[in-house]
């Protein structure tokens, strides 16, 4: 299974937290959903703290055709 991107995780968290306000909400599933949301939030936090950008200058001379 491919690793989820941070945006996918954020979207998933949005979906999970929105569930608590939806008509599908039920106390039976709430604990599981809440645990999943907290786990995902922690992952997002760790991802955001650890992710670095890769900035590279292209090895090409644009002064020439």
């Amino acid at each position: 299974m491919p690793k989820k991107t941070i945006n996918q995780k954020i979207a998933e968290l949005d979906e999970l937290t929105n569930w608590f306000y939806s008509e599908d909400f039920s106390l039976d599933q709430a604990t599981e959903k809440y645990k999943a949301a907290v786990k995902l939030a922690k992952e997002i936090e760790e991802d955001l703290k650890s992710l670095k950008n890769e900035i590279a200058v292209i090895d090409k001379d644009f002064t020439k055709e």
Partner: peptide, 24 residues
């Protein structure tokens, strides 16, 4: 670069170095 690095991570940025003033 400073602001991008401060705001977000996981990006692959390729920079084309060119002149940004003058006729060329």
């Amino acid at each position: 670069c400073k602001i991008v690095n401060a705001r977000w991570g996981g990006l692959k940025i390729q920079t084309a170095h060119t002149q940004v003033q003058g006729m060329d």
